[in-house]
């Protein structure tokens, strides 16, 4: 547990609706009280399907409180764009990290962990562990 600002979470999807809905789902399941900041970065600025570096960077800045930013992505260009931005070095906040996790389950795990005061390693680990939960 840390007294510092919580880890921020960014949800990157090809679809603005998916990113916003998963953020709302995670907020709902994270329960009442104060939660860590979570921001969707879905679709293109014009509303179309795709990945926007601009929306990702502004979302990451919006949730960055200095404790790191966990970025969860859906697939394809969302993965590649975040990787390319991280390689760039100066577009995303210091401490931004691509988290290898299933999008929906990982978002819930990340938000609950971040809201409980977990650090970036704990948030990333909780989100990645969501892969291990088998459904059959």
């Amino acid at each position: 547990m840390s007294a510092a600002a919580p880890v921020g979470i960014v949800l990157v999807s090809h679809s603005a609706d998916v990113a916003a809905s998963v953020a709302a789902l995670a907020l709902g399941l994270a329960g009442g009280g104060g939660t860590a900041p979570i921001h969707p970065a879905g679709g293109l600025p014009d509303g179309g399907l795709g990945t926007s570096a601009e929306l990702i960077c502004s979302a990451a800045k919006a949730v960055d409180g200095g404790a790191g930013v966990a970025i969860l992505v859906d697939l394809g260009s969302a993965v590649l764009t975040v990787k390319a931005l991280l390689a760039e070095g100066d577009e995303l906040p210091e401490g931004a990290r691509l988290v290898d996790a299933p999008f929906v389950e990982g978002a819930v795990a990340a938000l609950v962990t971040a809201s409980a005061g977990g650090d970036l390693d704990a948030v990333a680990a909780a989100a990645s562990e969501a892969y291990a939960y088998r459904k059959e």
Binding site: E54, S77, A84
Partner: peptide
């Protein structure tokens, strides 16, 4: 390259962006 990463919106953006950068 940076401009392609910022503006393309599909996987070709980070890929061509990375190539040029």
């Amino acid at each position: 390259g940076r401009q392609l990463i910022s503006t393309v919106g599909g996987a070709s953006g980070p890929l061509y962006g990375t190539l040029l950068r």
